[in-house]
Design a protein around this nucleic acid. Structure first.
Lengths: 343, 343
DNA sequence: AATCACCTCCAAAGCGCTTTGGACAGGTTT
DNA sequence: AAACCTGTCCAAAGCGCTTTGGAGGTGATT
């Protein structure tokens, strides 16, 4: 059942039916009712392609599934992020169009997404340091917002980011105040822009107290439980092992926890662990009132909400100056951190 | 730059340009070259909406992000699954259109996805027991394939599923052969159809050896690390604790591991743990040649591949009888399982 | 020289919607 | 009574593509 048929069955013109359905004023309340009822009865839904072609709006935003480097690892944060974005977009009738692109195809995928008219804007995820996609998107002239940002020129485009630097500064301070002086950093892949910021926050906090970092207890890799376990085992076996760990993800922290327990040490007493927590729904940090790890928390689902909201505003008013959102992570104290052991 | 402009700039008709670009034979090789070059130079890309409207094919498939029950938990399996699907779909130029739907809105979301002409088919995930979405999709007459299946009428629609029953049967056998007689089952939410099958496989294996299950050491919940830890702690404190655990997900197994270690027990010696492993890229079960857990493994990314492949075939030939794929999980032996301790 | 087939190209009709620019009737104002 | 709104509706023109049904030109066949 298309508009033409519906109009015919009502003895009205397409124009009138279209206007009635879309809430235009130049149609009497009586016919509007009649049209609405008929539409409901016939299960009429406008064809989105035709509508989109006529209005110029796709009512969809694009999202390119980021694959971490060559390792084909899907960003674990993706599902919650996309859920948040989809949730917000749904309130305004937008869909998400998803593409997956290997590193090499990125450019092409972005190009085609745009020019095919399938989407009105894009959300870009997981920016790398010096990411060239941003320039590409700017060149293409398509509205976009970045989840995260890249260090340079970050006032020239929309982004929403967590204050990674501040979060890790705060987390480090928390440990320093407990008297820890040898703090290990298990960071994400340093190709990711956020990993840089986190490290900077960590280093700043140390140097503010006159401490210097020891490269031997700093590592960075794809954030898995394995990595946390392996790195922690190695570091705990050092002549001068760390008394605390700062990790970039709950999974890594869980790995550290396993290593700590395997050595017969006690978390929060012998070894402190603080982590960043993306608030993934399937990976809760204990319960609301009883967290397991002391953590800087910033639910990535909310990031999805904000990115979507920002993008929709940008689509509505493309000429407004770029909008930025910087979220502060909240530090929640759990039993995994405590005073440095007195030797 | 649209087709009209491109044609004008070449002094050709739209028809010829369109044919040249789409590889139709009725255009000379010389002009085809000329057209291709001009298209490349102008960065011309056909508008997908217009093309879709003209051809009747959307070149996209729909996916509804499932939210587990009321708990707003995003399926952790989603990201790898969608990566697999997107990967396969990309080879044929299909995109994925994503919607998110709460339990109540499901029907509406599916309805609109279809009739809006935005997609040519759908992939349905995470079916519940007696899931009504299947009937809905059948009624709507849209090609679809289910990741998993529902017990009744499963010959009437396309699905791809792992043989959950067989996997858990095999895993249970593995433990039984090691002499374990008190095996705990930590299952996923039993509203999920696969959880049912897994339990059946477990129970079958037990009864085949004349053993009966003890409800006290069977549990089911959303599959988190917390859940594994909590349930294992509780069960290990029973007067007659289990000597082995069979869990539905690596996260749950990790929780069990933590509980085991917390009690000072040794995995694979005092307590055996076998789990199912969805092969999530960000949650590896150790390395390829050195797994941590004994596990029945079936990478969900491959499931995504297969679902996509099946769906594309179905779209090409809607009248073929429903196609089914049943995957056998592979049992990989790790250090987490061993002979039952002799009391 | 006429016929035929073939190759290369084109005009125009859709696909299903929105939107512009009236048309027509009825009531208000001058 | 003429002029003017105002409210309600419609015909038709796009949006950018594909595809049907020829048209015109060339060379081979009779």
């Amino acid at each position: 059942m298309n508009l033409k048929d519906l109009a015919a069955s009502l003895g009205l013109s397409q124009t009138t039916v279209s206007r009635a359905l879309n809430g235009y004023p130049e149609v009497s309340e009586a016919t509007r009712k009649r049209v609405a009822e008929a539409a409901r009865q016939h299960g009429y839904r406008p064809d989105s392609r035709a509508r989109s072609l006529a209005t110029g709006r796709a009512m969809a935003v694009g999202l390119v599934l980021p694959m971490t480097a060559k390792q084909e690892i899907v960003n674990p944060v993706f599902s919650d992020f996309v859920a948040g974005a989809a949730e917000t977009l749904a309130t305004r009738g937008y869909d998400i169009v998803l593409s997956l692109a290997s590193e090499e195809e990125q450019t092409n995928v972005y190009r085609s997404m745009l020019s095919k008219g399938r989407v009105d804007g894009m959300i870009m995820q997981a920016p790398l340091t010096g990411d060239r996609r941003i320039q590409l998107l700017k060149d293409l002239g398509m509205p976009f917002v970045v989840h995260g940002r890249v260090s340079d020129h970050d006032d020239e485009y929309c982004w929403m980011d967590m204050d990674n630097r501040h979060a890790f500064h705060e987390a480090t301070d928390h440990l320093l105040e407990f008297g820890h002086e040898r703090i290990a950093l298990l960071n994400g892949m340093e190709a990711m822009d956020f990993a840089h910021r986190r490290r900077d926050g960590f280093l700043d906090a140390l140097s503010e107290r006159g401490l210097s970092a020891d490269p031997e207890i700093m590592d960075s890799a794809v954030m898995t439980e394995q990595y946390g376990y392996g790195a922690a085992c190695r570091m705990l076996a050092l002549p001068a092992p760390p008394t605390a760990f700062l990790t970039s993800s709950l999974l890594v922290a869980m790995g550290v926890q396993r290593a700590v327990q395997a050595r017969g040490l006690r978390m929060g007493l012998d070894i402190s662990v603080v982590t960043h927590d993306d608030g993934l729904s399937y990976l809760p940090n204990g319960s609301e009132d009883a967290p397991i790890f002391t953590a800087t928390r910033s639910p990535v689902r909310v990031h999805g909400n904000i990115c979507a909201e920002t993008l929709m505003k940008l689509i509505d008013a493309p000429q407004t100056p770029p909008h930025h959102t910087k979220l502060k992570a909240s530090l929640t104290i759990g039993p995994s951190s405590g005073p440095a052991p007195t030797v």
